[in-house]
């Protein structure tokens, strides 16, 4: 496999994982005008949130700040919206930002709601345990694709807890002490398939089986992956006018998918890829 030879040293690898881990998005939360009960619009709330996290894990303070200003008799679960688009809590924040916020000014201005929960579009999230069980389930799905579930099944409950706690509490080393086993990619533990999802605004995500290497042993690239997963995009000129974003980065289409999976996956072990129309800059 060509890329293995030119592979970066472990130290460099770790630096990339660190950079990804530390990615943050500045967000400005504002209570929906029509839900202000106390007469005066509360101050907006500013937060720097990790791209890898989920909104319910980082918005406790926003909730407490806004709650004081809504009708105590008529409010339900808090939900977020950007420019008319309700935001799914079960997508990592970085995915939501790449999908909807990439071309707006920073901080990313989100509207906070406590009424009219859009049942059709959003899942309910009653507690952080719901986020945890979603997270662990996606990790299991990823391992089912990579290792037929053998790695995750060989782990104990406490390993799952360590993984979650490391992620939750921003403890990089703790998280990777377990995650390195899930990312094992050599010999018998080589990835069978690469867990990925492709997102486009207004479309259901695309998820398919994709082997990281061809039968000839050649490592397959992001371009191959896109050809397999969204062939309609490759047949036309649509790809030229699309931005392919992973973790807010536009990786070269010749990047081996294995490398991307090992370095740019979210903590749920999936490679979340956003396809965005390229905005023409008028000269």
């Amino acid at each position: 496999m060509a890329y293995k030879q030119s592979r970066l040293t472990m130290a460099d690898d770790r630096e990339i994982l660190r950079e990804i881990w530390e990615g943050k998005v500045p967000v400005c939360f504002q209570l929906a005008q029509e839900e202000v009960y106390t007469g005066e619009q509360p101050d907006p709330f500013f937060l720097l949130v990790p791209r890898l996290s989920y909104f319910p894990l980082v918005t406790d303070k926003v909730l407490r700040h806004m709650m004081k200003h809504v009708d105590p008799e008529h409010h339900g679960e808090m939900w977020l919206e950007f420019d008319g688009q309700p935001l799914k809590w079960h997508y990592p924040i970085g995915v939501l930002f790449d999908l909807y916020g990439m071309s707006t000014d920073l901080p990313w201005k989100l509207t906070v709601h406590f009424q009219n929960f859009p049942e059709e579009e959003l899942l309910r999230c009653s507690s952080k345990e719901v986020v945890q069980s979603h997270f662990i389930s996606v990790v299991k799905e990823a391992d089912a694709l990579k290792h037929r579930g053998q790695v995750i099944n060989s782990m104990q409950k406490k390993d799952h807890s360590t993984l979650w706690a490391g992620f939750m509490n921003d403890k990089f080393d703790q998280f990777w002490s377990v995650n390195k086993r899930l990312m094992e990619n050599s010999g018998e533990k080589a990835f069978m398939f690469v867990p990925f999802r492709i997102y486009r605004a207004d479309q259901i995500p695309v998820q398919k089986l994709f082997k990281p290497c061809a039968d000839s042993g050649e490592s397959l690239t992001l371009r191959h992956l896109l050809k397999t997963a969204v062939p309609e995009l490759m047949e036309t000129d649509a790809l030229i006018s699309s931005r392919v974003l992973i973790q807010g980065i536009e990786p070269p289409l010749d990047t081996p998918v294995c490398w991307l999976s090992e370095h740019l996956s979210y903590p749920d072990n999936f490679l979340h890829i956003c396809l965005m129309p390229r905005v023409e800059v008028e000269s």
């Binding site: 079960h90 979603h134 389930s137 996606v138 299991k140 799905e141 089912a144 579930g149 995750i152 099944n153």
Partner: peptide, 8 residues
């Protein structure tokens, strides 16, 4: 699915 994980 696979008696292993619950898809969202």
């Amino acid at each position: 699915v696979n008696q292993a994980f619950a898809p969202s």
